Simulated scan of single mutants.
Amino acid sequence: MTELLSDQRIDEALQGLPEWRRVGDAIERSAELASFPQAIEVVNRVAERAEAANHHPDIDIRWRTVTFRLSTHSHGGITEKDIALAGEIDDVITDV
């Protein structure tokens, strides 16, 4: 069963995800890519991983800046699913 993470666990997880920050009941990161097409490529790759995990981020695209926001809405906050997908998103951004 998925459980909400404690504040301490979230803080610990974010130490390993330095581009992410806590915003209320979610974690968030933005990435500025080299071009708009590259930003769309990142979104498409993240979409594939999110679909495979059945856990979907909120995504905001502004020209070449993409912001990802993760929260497990069904549980009202941050769970291990969010931490895991944040790592996957970091991998995608690094690989582009």
Rank of each mutant, 00 (worst) to 15 (best):
V43R: 01
V43A: 09
V43F: 05
N44S: 09
N44F: 11
N44D: 05
N44C: 07
N44Y: 14
N44Q: 15
N44G: 00
N44E: 10
N44M: 13
R45P: 11
R45Q: 14
R45N: 10
R45A: 09
R45C: 10
R45I: 08
R45Y: 12
V46S: 02
V46N: 00
V46I: 01
A47C: 05
A47V: 01
E48A: 15
E48M: 15
E48I: 15
E48Y: 15
R49A: 10
R49Y: 04
R49S: 11
R49G: 11
A50Q: 04
E51K: 14
E51S: 14
E51N: 13
E51R: 15
A52L: 12
A52Q: 11
A53Q: 08
N54H: 15
N54Q: 12
N54V: 12
N54I: 14
H55A: 04
H55Q: 09
H55C: 09
H55Y: 10
H56F: 04
H56V: 01
H56R: 02
P57N: 05
P57E: 02
P57I: 03
P57Y: 02
P57M: 06
P57V: 04
D58C: 11
D58H: 11
D58P: 09
D58Q: 14
I59L: 06
I59F: 01
D60Y: 08
I61T: 02
I61L: 04
I61Q: 00
I61Y: 06
R62W: 14
R62Q: 08
R62I: 11
R62F: 12
R62G: 04
R62M: 07
R62K: 15
W63L: 01
W63K: 04
W63R: 02
W63T: 06
W63F: 00
R64V: 02
R64H: 03
R64P: 05
T65L: 00
T65F: 02
T65V: 05
V66D: 00
V66I: 06
T67V: 06
T67E: 00
T67K: 02
T67D: 00
T67S: 00
T67I: 07
R69D: 04
R69T: 13
L70F: 01
L70D: 01
L70R: 10
S71Q: 14
S71G: 06
S71C: 12
T72H: 07
H73I: 10
H73A: 12
H73E: 12
H73G: 13
H73P: 08
H73D: 09
S74V: 12
S74M: 11
S74Q: 13
H75F: 14
H75K: 13
H75N: 13
H75I: 12
G76C: 01
G76D: 00
G76R: 04
G76S: 06
G77C: 03
G77S: 02
G77A: 05
G77K: 06
